[in-house]
């Protein structure tokens, strides 16, 4: 046990601080909850949320302090790097898709989204990407519209689709 490498976990400190911050904000909002008008209740509407907020603060602080503590470093292989900007690009495409979903319509927005993500990660296979990006939403559209009778937004194609 003595020869082991010691290390800190700064990621935990950051995560713990975020949790504690969220907890503090949550507690402040919870404390502003008005009391129950029917004063019969022992536990009002503010009690439980306040308790949860305080627990979040305490838990966050504990994680943050734990991250500062020296402890035997993990022998584990380095955590699989989820590449920074690749993530943000994916998130941005996904966010744009969510926003466009209703105004542009299911079919067009989904074809664009799938084509976008698939071409971003495997740009050389544009043919199979395109087939996939068109066939997948078409199947889903048929299943939802005609089998399950869940209407999907038509958007720009309103009136064009049967």
């Amino acid at each position: 046990m003595t020869a082991e490498k010691l290390g800190r976990k700064p990621a935990d400190t950051v995560a713990g601080a975020v949790v504690a911050g969220v907890g503090a904000a949550y507690t402040i909002v919870a404390l502003q909850t008005p009391p129950d008008p029917s004063s019969a209740s022992v536990i009002g509407p503010a009690v439980f949320p306040t308790l949860l907020g305080v627990l979040l603060v305490l838990g966050g602080v504990a994680v943050a302090i734990g991250g500062l503590r020296l402890r035997p470093a993990r022998a584990k292989a380095e955590p699989a790097q989820n590449g920074g900007w690749r993530l943000w690009v994916t998130v941005a495409i996904f966010g744009a898709y969510v926003i466009a979903f209703i105004p542009v319509g299911y079919l067009l927005s989904t074809v664009a989204f799938l084509m976008g993500v698939a071409s971003y990660f495997s740009p050389h296979k544009w043919k199979s990407n395109l087939i996939f990006a068109i066939v997948f939403p078409l199947i889903v559209l048929v299943v939802f519209e005609y089998l399950l009778r869940v209407p999907l937004p038509e958007g720009l194609l309103a009136g064009v689709l049967p």
């Binding site: 790097q81 590449g83 993530l87």
Partner: peptide, 8 residues
Amino acid sequence: LANLTRRR
């Protein structure tokens, strides 16, 4: 997201 963006 994790599966899409993992480098390995």
